[in-house]
Computed example of a mutant assay.
Amino acid sequence: MPTSTAARDVFINCPFDSTYKPVFWAIVFTVLRSGFSPRCALEADDSSENRLARIQAIIEECRYGIHDISRTEVDGDPPLPRFNMPLELGLFFGAKRYGNNDQRTKRALVLDREQYRYQRFISDIAGADIHAHGADPGKCIEQVATWLRTQSRDTKIPGGRKISEEFEVFQSQLGAICADRGLEPDELTFGDFAELVAAYLTVDP
């Protein structure tokens, strides 16, 4: 049975490829800047653990979920779509619908490149409020910051435009920050990036 959720944990369900990474990093930065803890399937690299079981456990522990369903293009031979993100969105919805009272407090933000594109491949969520980011990290930051502030009723969370400006400053310093740690920006893992952002925000909140 699902147990309790962590009030400030945010499950991030999104593509992890290099093309999407600027948006992914923007989401992680915004979650941390807003005073929440980002969680995703990349947080643990344990080959002995089933990936789906790990995702289910993270979903169970998170009150909030950010789901980007923008990457559903066909790939490979034969060409087939990738539906990991819609699957994990369904798991999150299922936990909220069928879980205990604590699980039913879950809140979800669904993102896509275009507001109504989802109707072509996952029309069953029609009626949900889909937020379009146009693959723009700055616009995505505004969507995420506004949603977190609204859902948590935490008035200390800055506006998205301010966080977007702070993210740009952080990005301009990321190379130097990585050099101090003996890292390269293009080799950062999710854990590396989240830790660097958290440390940066502690020094320059």
Results as ranks from 00 to 15, higher is better:
residue 194 A to R: 12
residue 119 Q to R: 15
residue 156 K to R: 12
residue 187 E to Q: 14
residue 196 L to I: 10
residue 133 H to I: 04
residue 151 Q to I: 05
residue 106 K to C: 08
residue 120 R to K: 13
residue 148 L to S: 01
residue 136 D to I: 09
residue 109 L to P: 05
residue 142 E to H: 12
residue 194 A to V: 06
residue 99 G to S: 06
residue 115 Q to V: 15
residue 187 E to S: 15
residue 116 Y to T: 15
residue 140 C to F: 04
residue 126 A to M: 11
residue 198 A to M: 08
residue 104 R to D: 10
residue 131 H to W: 10
residue 159 G to F: 02
residue 149 R to W: 00
residue 115 Q to I: 13
residue 171 Q to H: 06
residue 181 R to V: 04
residue 158 P to C: 02
residue 100 N to S: 14
residue 199 A to K: 13
residue 164 S to N: 14
residue 193 F to K: 05
residue 113 R to N: 12
residue 140 C to T: 14
residue 199 A to H: 08
residue 179 A to R: 10
residue 131 H to G: 02
residue 106 K to A: 11
residue 130 I to Y: 02
residue 177 I to Y: 07
residue 152 S to T: 04
residue 197 V to F: 12
residue 170 F to A: 00
residue 103 Q to Y: 06
residue 182 G to S: 04
residue 175 G to H: 07
residue 111 L to C: 06
residue 116 Y to F: 15
residue 148 L to E: 02
residue 133 H to R: 07
residue 171 Q to F: 00
residue 200 Y to F: 14
residue 156 K to P: 00
residue 140 C to D: 05
residue 129 D to C: 09
residue 155 T to P: 01
residue 159 G to Q: 02
residue 172 S to H: 11
residue 141 I to E: 06
residue 107 R to A: 09
residue 126 A to F: 11
residue 103 Q to T: 05
residue 105 T to M: 12
residue 137 P to F: 06
residue 151 Q to N: 00
residue 109 L to F: 06
residue 162 K to I: 14
residue 160 G to I: 04
residue 150 T to K: 10
residue 153 R to W: 03
residue 167 F to W: 15
residue 162 K to H: 14
residue 184 E to V: 13
residue 114 E to S: 10
residue 175 G to P: 02
residue 135 A to V: 04
residue 110 V to T: 09
residue 183 L to Q: 13
residue 191 G to Q: 12
residue 112 D to H: 07
residue 124 D to C: 00
residue 157 I to L: 02
residue 150 T to Q: 07
residue 192 D to Q: 10
residue 184 E to C: 11
residue 168 E to Q: 15
residue 122 I to G: 00
residue 109 L to V: 05
residue 158 P to K: 02
residue 114 E to G: 03
residue 194 A to F: 09
residue 142 E to S: 13
